[in-house]
Design a protein around this nucleic acid. Structure first.
Length: 395
RNA sequence: GCAGGGGUGGUCGAGUGGUUAAUGGCACCGGGCUGUAAACCCGGCGGGUUCACACCCUACGCAGGUUCGAAUCCUGCCCCCUGCA
C-alpha cells in the first residue's frame, strides 16, 4: 500500500525542525498550527477565509465524538465524507474522541472495552471504543486519524496514570488493527470524491499514536516506547494542558518530544498560546492545534505580538489603532480597537468573527515566521525576540 | 376637574413595619478560557476612610408625622399614566 503521508525534515536549528508533511490532500509546511473545527466548522470563520492568503490554513481539525453524535456518520457518508460535507478540500485531522473522555468527565464511564458517554446533547447513552472511533474516522475520511486514547486528568496520581496509560496502549493496538481493516473497506467502497481527489485518494488515511502518562516521566517514557513499538505514521503527545501545572507540562514536553521518532511528525495536542507554540517548536514539535485563537476570539480576547488584549476593556473605547500594530491581517488593516470593542459590547456577532480571524492570522503568521527562522538558522534569536515582545504588554 | 393606578439605586423591576446598602434582569467595570458541553463562565457594581478585619456617611418623588424601629403606616405637596368629563 502507498504511504499515507510522507514527512521530510528540511531544516534543523537546534532541536527545532522545519519540514514538509505531504498528505493525500496537499503539502503542509511544518511547524504547523491547525485551527480547530470541532463540529465541522472552525467557529466564526468561512472556509474561503481559511484558504485565502491572510490565513492560508493547510489543515484543520474535526472531532469524531461531536460529528458522530451530530449529524451522525450516516449523514456524512451520504454527503460523500467530511471534506465534501463541509466544503473543504485541504487536509483534515480528526481527533478520536479521546479528549472528550477527559472534558466530558462527568458524563462518561470507562471500561476496558471503551467509554460509555451520556450524550451532552440529549442525555442518551452512547458507546465509543477504539473500533468505533476508527470506523467513524474512516467514514469521515479525514487525512490524519488519531487513535482512541484515554486523556487522563493532568493531576492524575502515579498509579491512576499508569492504569490509564496502559489502557491507552491497549486501545492504541486495537485502534491500529481496526484502522487497517477500515482502510481496506474504504478503498474497496471508494468514497465518492471529485476526480482529482480520487486520484489522490489512492493514499490511505494516516494514523497517529498518542503518548500518555500524565506528568509522570517514567510513565511517559514507557508510553512512548510502547506506542512506537506498535508503529504509527506520526506521534502525538496528549494529556497536557488538562489541569496540570504549567512547569510540569514543560517537563513532559522537553523530555518526550526529542525522543519521538525523528523521521515522523510530532504533534503536541491541544497546545497552546503563541509563546507555548514557539517554546514547543524549540523542543522539536512539528504540529499543534488549540482552541485558544477561536474560543478566545469569540470571548473578547485578542492575541497580539505584544501579548493579550482584552477588547472589552474601557481603555480601548476611543483607540483608533488596530488590535496589533505590527499585524498585516485584513482585520488589522481595516478596523480599530474602538470599533471592535463597540461591536463586542453591542453583542454583534461580527466582533467574534473579526477577533477570531485576527487571532488565527496571528497564530498562522507566527508559524510562518517560525519556519522561516528555522530555515535561516535564526530560530534562537527569533524565539528570544518573540517571547520578549509577547511579554512586553499591549500599550 | 373627578375616579383609579403609580413614583425604589445608571436602567427596568421586586420588596408593603424589623437578618435593608435594599432580590432579580439589563447596562457598566474587571478577570478567566490550551486535542471546544464555551458567541461562554466567574467576580465587582451608592459614597468615603483603611493594607485588612472594620468603621462612617447618604439613600426608595419632596416635606412633615406615627413608631423602639419606616421604602413599607398617616398628612400635605409635586410629578406621571389610564378612564370620564
Amino acid at each position: 500500500m502507498d504511504p499515507a503521508i510522507t514527512f521530510e525534515v528540511t531544516a534543523l536549528d537546534g532541536q527545532a525542525r522545519s519540514g514538509t508533511l505531504t498528505t493525500r490532500r496537499g503539502v503542509i509546511e511544518t511547524p504547523v498550527f491547525m485551527p480547530v473545527g470541532t463540529a465541522g466548522s472552525v467557529k466564526g470563520v468561512r472556509f474561503e477565509e481559511l484558504e485565502a492568503p491572510d490565513l492560508d490554513a493547510r489543515i484543520i481539525l474535526g472531532n469524531t465524538y461531536h460529528l458522530w453524535l451530530r449529524p451522525g456518520i450516516e449523514t456524512i457518508k451520504a454527503c460523500g465524507g467530511l471534506h465534501r460535507f463541509i466544503g473543504w478540500d485541504r487536509a483534515l485531522l480528526t481527533d478520536s474522541g479521546g479528549f472528550q473522555v477527559w472534558s466530558l468527565g462527568s458524563l462518561r464511564k470507562i471500561t476496558e472495552e471503551g467509554v460509555e458517554f451520556r450524550s451532552h446533547l440529549d442525555g442518551s447513552l452512547q458507546f465509543m471504543s477504539p473500533e468505533i472511533s476508527m470506523e467513524v474516522q474512516a467514514a469521515l475520511g479525514s487525512d490524519i486519524v488519531m487513535v482512541f486514547d484515554e486523556c487522563a486528568p493532568g493531576k492524575a496520581a502515579h498509579d491512576e496514570a499508569r492504569k490509564s496509560m496502559e489502557l491507552t496502549t491497549r486501545w492504541a493496538r486495537r485502534s491500529k488493527e481496526a484502522f487497517e481493516v477500515a482502510q481496506v473497506d474504504n478503498l474497496r467502497s471508494g468514497l465518492a470524491e471529485t476526480a482529482t481527489q480520487v486520484n489522490n485518494l489512492r493514499y490511505r488515511q494516516a494514523l497517529f499514536g498518542i503518548v500518555q502518562g500524565a506528568t509522570h516521566l517514567d510513565l511517559r517514557r514507557e508510553s512512548l516506547a510502547r506506542t512506537v513499538e506498535i508503529g504509527f505514521d506520526g506521534y502525538a503527545i496528549g494529556g497536557l494542558s488538562v489541569g496540570e501545572e504549567k512547569p510540569l507540562m514543560w517537563d513532559v514536553t522537553s523530555e518526550i518530544a526529542p525522543l519521538l521518532p525523528a523521521d515522523r511528525p510530532r504533534y503536541l495536542m491541544g497546545v497552546g498560546t503563541p509563546e507555548d507554540l514557539v517554546a514547543a517548536v524549540a523542543l522539536g514539535v512539528d504540529m499543534f492545534d488549540c482552541v485558544l485563537p477561536t474560543r478566545n476570539g469569540r470571548t473578547g480576547q485578542a492575541f497580539t505580538s505584544r501579548g493579550k488584549l482584552n477588547i472589552k476593556n474601557a481603555q480601548w473605547a476611543r483607540d483608533a489603532r488596530p488590535l496589533d500594530q505590527s499585524c498585516q491581517c485584513s482585520v488589522c488593516l481595516r478596523h480599530t480597537r474602538a470599533y471592535l470593542r463597540h461591536l463586542y459590547l453591542a453583542g454583534e456577532m461580527l466582533a467574534s468573527i473579526l477577533l477570531t480571524h485576527h487571532n488565527l492570522a496571528f497564530f498562522l503568521d507566527t508559524m510562518r515566521r517560525v519556519r522561516q527562522a528555522i530555515r535561516s538558522g535564526n530560530f534562537t534569536r527569533f524565539r528570544r525576540e518573540f517571547t520578549e515582545a509577547v511579554n512586553s504588554g499591549v500599550e
